[in-house]
Each structure stands twice: as C-alpha cells, then as structure tokens.
Design a binder for these strands. Structure first.
Lengths: 198, 198
DNA sequence: GTCTATACACCGATAGAC
DNA sequence: GTCTATCGGTGTATAGAC
C-alpha cells in the first residue's frame, strides 16, 4: 500500500530475519516467515531482494557490522590485569545471559556460512572482526593495569575469542552460571600470563 | 528386495544420516538424501522410523553413545601436568584436523537440539558425557604427573570442555593451526593451575 | 517387508492486475 | 511499487501392489 524505499525495505527485512532466526532458529527462517515478521507480502521480498540467498548474505554482513558491542565493553575497570580481563569476560557473560537467543543466532549463522564455499569468507570476516574488537579491549586493559603484552596482542585476542566462544556454547547447553564463571576465571588467568606487569 | 531386520535398517539409516550431515550440513539431511545415502527406498525409511524427527533423536543419542574418543585419548604421556594436558588437547586438535566435518556435524546437531524443548535434554546429555570423559582424562593426567586437583575435577573438566569447544569453533572458521595451538597452550596453562604438584 | 506411485503441505520465486 | 494468485519443485509421509 504505502511506498517504501527499497533500501528501507531491505533493512526492515534483515531486521525481521534476525528476529526470526533468534526466536525460531535458522531452519525456520523461510522467506514466508520473514515477510510475516516484517508485515509485508511475499512479493515485496523479491522486489527488495533477488533471492533468499542474497538476504542471508546481507544478514550475515550486517550482523558483523553491528558487532560494536565488543567481546569486552568499553568501560573497563582499573586494577590488576587478570581482574580487568575477568571483569570484561564476566561482562560479556552478562550480555549473553540477557539475550541468549541473539548469541545462538550468531552461532547458527556462522555454522550456516561455513557450509557453503561462497559464504565461508563471510564467517571468516565475522571472526576477524571479533578478534579485532578483542584486541582493542586487551590493549586498553593492559594500559589500565600498567602491563605489557609479551605475546602479540592479536594472538592473545584470538585466544580470548576462542575461550569466549567456548563459554557461550557450553552455557547455551547447560545454563550453568557457576561453571561459566569458572571458565571466565580460568580464561582471564591464562590470558593475563601473556603479559608482564610493568 | 532383501529382507533386513528393522534394527539393522535403523542403524544403517542413522549411519547414513550422520554421513550426510557431516558432508552437507544438517539442512541438507532430508529423508530423501538419507535414504539415497543408505541405498534404500523412501518407504523403507518410514518402515524403520515413524518420522524424520524420530531419526534425528536417535541420531543424537547414538552420537553421544559413540563418543568414546574422549576429549583427550587414553594413552597420555608422562611429565609435568601442564605438558600432559597440553599434549592431550593437541591430540584432540589433530583429531579435529583429521575429520573436521565430523566435529562440525556434532556442533550442528547440538545447535539443532537446542532449538526444541524436547530435544534440549539430548544436548545436555551429550555435554554431560563430554565432561565425564574429560574428567576421566584429567584424573589420569594428575595421577601420571603426581599432581592433586585442588578444585573439583568435574569443574576442571567443564572448563576443559568449554575451551575445547572454543578451539573447535574458531578453527573451523579460520583454519589457523598456529592460533589453535596457542589456544591449546593457554588452556593447558589455565587448567594446570587448578592443581598442586605433590 | 519392500517396493513404486502418489498425496499433500510448504518452499522459493514469478506473473499480472492495480 | 505493491498486491493476490499461482507456478514448479521438493519436503515428509502414506497407499497399495507384490
């Protein structure tokens, strides 16, 4: 009925798609379910996108772009490096608990991307972004606590991303908060040993 | 044509299903693809199983049962605890590299199970089994190196499973062997600090 | 028990009226 | 540009001959 610019329509559909994936899983994210979520007709979908595949690509790319909420947030506490890192990981854990479906959607989108050679690079870009954000946080953390990394920060960041992924996956399965805090503690311990106090 | 007991047929279909999921992903694991892989007709499927859902449940359960290849294999080296653990994680990593599609299939099956309330317990059982196997390995590792855990071994094992999951997921994305070895090293470092040398 | 043939729902995508 | 109606294809599941 109302005329909506194609760009807005694309954005609305991508938002709807992410909500559907979060709520019901990627298997249920059919074009029909997505347009229903967006309150559009099926034909409008194919006016905005050539195909469902094109939307999925766009969705993954958008999701990478919007990963501003870093592995560890901006405002880090002061203190010993190990404590700063642990606080950051715990902060991420709180974020995970606040919106588990979102992180589950991220995991599903990654797995989905890994299954086709054309999309695999999208997953790699997603993880490069994760590592980049982790790297920034770790540099700030070292600065705050007056420590110096004696391992390339990029490598430390890659380990942090791996540990964070593991925390996420295992918690999504067993929802064991105490166990995940132990993971956060162990992760911070291991990471902090890659730096020397100054 | 030939008469095959229902039980054998079920086993053959489950094996075929796992191969299809490994090779092409869970989204492609349709009943048609599975019976084609097993060399059966479509009707034979529904003679052996009431529904596709029933096969998926059975597949996940079977996969749990067959997780004998522990997170860390039986024959652990002697030496300092940290080295024994790292060797074990590296051994798992070699296993991952030898058959990445299998581990990818495990991850997809877990994610799939998480999406329905009835199947979530299956995923939890899968992870309890992982933790149990990790626990056994960690007990042996401590024994070999003459160390004593000062944290409940079950908790250490849960952390090991999380770290291993993270190593798996990140490696499947970027295939960065060096980075994954760094993850293995950091993981062993953190875990070994949960024990005291005797 | 095992097959071929088919029912029926839902998928992505498009035609054509407005 | 946006809709309703529909196409062709594929999904799970079943009927009925053998």
């Amino acid at each position: 009925m109302t005329r909506i610019p194609a760009q807005e329509r694309r954005a609305a559909l991508i938002g709807a798609a992410l909500r559907v994936v979060s709520r019901n899983g990627i298997a249920q994210a059919t074009t029909r379910a997505i347009v229903a979520e967006a309150g559009m007709s099926l034909a409008s979908f194919h006016y905005a996108f050539d195909s469902r595949d094109e939307l999925m690509d766009e969705l993954i790319s958008t999701v990478i772009e919007n990963t501003r909420r870093a592995i560890m947030p901006e405002d880090l506490a002061d203190g010993a490096l190990v404590d700063v890192i642990e606080a950051g990981v715990v902060r991420y854990f709180e974020h995970l608990k606040a919106d588990p479906e979102h992180e589950q959607a991220m995991l599903e989108l990654t797995q989905y991307a890994l299954r086709s050679p054309e999309r695999h690079p999208l997953a790699q870009a997603q993880y490069r972004r994760y590592v980049e954000l982790a790297e920034q946080s770790l540099e700030i953390a070292a600065e705050r606590s007056g420590a110096v990394w004696h391992v390339p920060v990029a490598q430390v960041a890659r380990v942090l991303v791996a540990f964070t992924d593991g925390l996420t996956l295992t918690w999504l399965v067993d929802r064991d908060d105490a166990a995940s805090l132990a993971v956060a503690h162990a992760a911070a311990d291991a990471l902090s040993r890659m730096a020397d106090p100054r």
